[in-house]
Amino acid sequence: MTNDDLSRAWDRHAETYARVGAPCTGYIAQSLFHTVAGRLPSAAHMLEIACGNGELSRAAVMHCLEERKTTGTCGRVVATDFSPEMVAHAKSNLGVLGAADIVRCEVRDGQALGFEDASFDAVFSAFGIFLFPDRNAGWREAARVLRPGGLLATAVWRGPEDNALARLQMAPVMAALPERVRASLPRASWLDIASPEGLAKEVSAAGFVDPEVSVFNAVLTAPTPRAMWSMMRENPVTRSLFAACSDEELAPVERSVLSSFEELAGGADRPVRFDASCHFLVARRA
Rank of each mutant, 00 (worst) to 15 (best):
T2C: 11
D4C: 02
S7A: 05
S7P: 04
R8T: 15
W10C: 12
H13A: 11
H13Y: 15
E15L: 05
E15R: 12
T16P: 08
R19G: 04
P23T: 07
C24V: 14
C24E: 15
C24Q: 14
T25V: 13
Q30M: 09
L32D: 11
L32Q: 05
F33G: 00
T35Y: 12
L40K: 08
L40W: 00
S42H: 15
M46E: 14
E48M: 09
E48W: 03
I49P: 03
I49Y: 01
C51I: 06
G52N: 03
G54R: 04
L56H: 03
V61L: 07
R68S: 08
G72N: 01
G72Q: 06
G72D: 06
T73R: 08
R76Y: 14
V77Q: 09
S83M: 01
E85V: 01
M86W: 04
M86R: 05
N93G: 06
V96M: 03
A99T: 05
E106M: 01
D121C: 05
A122H: 10
S125R: 02
F127W: 13
F132A: 10
P133R: 05
G138F: 00
R144D: 13
R144Q: 08
V145M: 01
V145Q: 07
R147I: 00
R147W: 06
P148G: 10
T154Q: 13
W157K: 01
W157P: 10
P160N: 06
D162Y: 13
A164Q: 10
L165S: 14
L168P: 12
A171Y: 03
P172K: 01
V173R: 02
A175V: 11
A176K: 02
R180G: 04
R180Q: 10
R180C: 04
R180K: 06
S184T: 13
D192W: 10
A194V: 03
A194F: 05
E197W: 02
E197N: 04
K201R: 12
V203P: 06
S204K: 11
V209H: 09
V209M: 14
V209R: 13
V213T: 09
S214A: 15
V215W: 11
R226K: 13
W229E: 10
W229G: 13
W229I: 13
M232R: 03
M232T: 07
M232K: 02
R233E: 13
P236M: 02
T238Q: 03
A244K: 09
P252T: 07
P252I: 02
E263H: 11
G266Q: 07
G266S: 09
A268I: 06
A268V: 09
D269L: 05
V272M: 05
D275N: 11
H279K: 00
V282M: 01
R284V: 08
A286N: 14
